[in-house]
Amino acid sequence: MKALLKQLAKALLGDYSIYRVLQRGAGAGPAPMPPQAAGYVIGPVQRAEIEDCPDPVMREQAFYAGEGAHAYACRDAGQIVGLCFYWYGERYRPRGFWPLQDKQAKLVQIITSPAMRGRKVAPALIAASAADMAAQGFDCLFARVWHNNHPSLRAFAAAGWRRRALVVELNPLRRARPWRLRLR
């Protein structure tokens, strides 16, 4: 019966998505670095270095770098073990999920090497990259996280980000554009 109801709901409502939009403002102050992050080196990274990374999971992320993007790497013993990317301006505009103003950017991708998961790479990377983005003049940063992706939500919370909104998208009867509802 449950499976039948799911099929009926999908037929009527179409595909759906539920995201939490998170925010970090420049006035929020520095986020504390997790104690486990003391040995990490976090800073900007160029696309060429990502493309040369021996870890294939990290190499696959290189397309996020480039013009209109800021890329950051977390290194452990010299190896890239985590990456995050912020997009802004024209680079972000086609995505358009969340409206950005001048001096605002969206963290569009964060990834940790599978071997390093659970070692606080993500919160350290989020906190350090957000501090650098603020130093570069960005006054507000946003991220979108699937509503029940608890590891990511914990990482952002540990880095001092707060929930801004819940965005629900429904695509009933396979419309050309889904309905979008933003709940603050």
Rank of each mutant, 00 (worst) to 15 (best):
Y40T: 00
K120Y: 01
A128K: 12
G96R: 12
Q61G: 06
A128F: 07
A124V: 05
I42Q: 08
C84L: 13
R175H: 05
K6T: 06
I50V: 15
P30D: 05
V21H: 00
P172N: 09
R182K: 09
R162P: 01
A9T: 05
M33R: 09
I50P: 03
A159W: 14
L170F: 15
L173V: 08
M58S: 08
A157G: 05
I110R: 04
S129V: 12
P114L: 09
N149T: 13
L170Q: 07
R91E: 03
L170I: 03
C74S: 10
H150P: 01
A176K: 13
G27S: 07
A31T: 06
D132S: 12
L166I: 15
D139H: 11
F97S: 04
A65C: 13
L181F: 14
N148K: 14
S152E: 01
A122L: 03
L4F: 12
D15Y: 08
L170Y: 15
M33W: 05
R174N: 13
M58K: 09
I42E: 01
E60Y: 10
L8E: 03
G78C: 04
S152Y: 10
Q79H: 12
R162M: 01
A37S: 13
P94L: 15
V145E: 00
G43T: 10
L83Q: 10
L4P: 01
K10L: 11
A158M: 09
G25I: 07
Q136E: 06
R93E: 02
L13R: 15
V45C: 10
M1S: 08
A48S: 12
I50D: 06
E51D: 07
H147I: 14
V168T: 10
R75Q: 04
F63M: 08
P172L: 10
V57P: 07
Q46P: 03
G39L: 07
A157N: 08
N148S: 09
R117T: 03
A165V: 13
L12R: 14
G39S: 04
I80T: 08
F85I: 04
I42N: 02
A48I: 14
Q36W: 04
Q101A: 08
I111Q: 02
M1H: 05
P34E: 02
R162T: 10
Y40P: 00
K106L: 10
V41L: 06
L13G: 09
G66M: 15
A134M: 14
G78T: 10
N149E: 07
R47H: 13
R163G: 02
L181E: 00
A9W: 05
T112N: 05
L8I: 11
E90K: 14
G78N: 03
W161E: 00
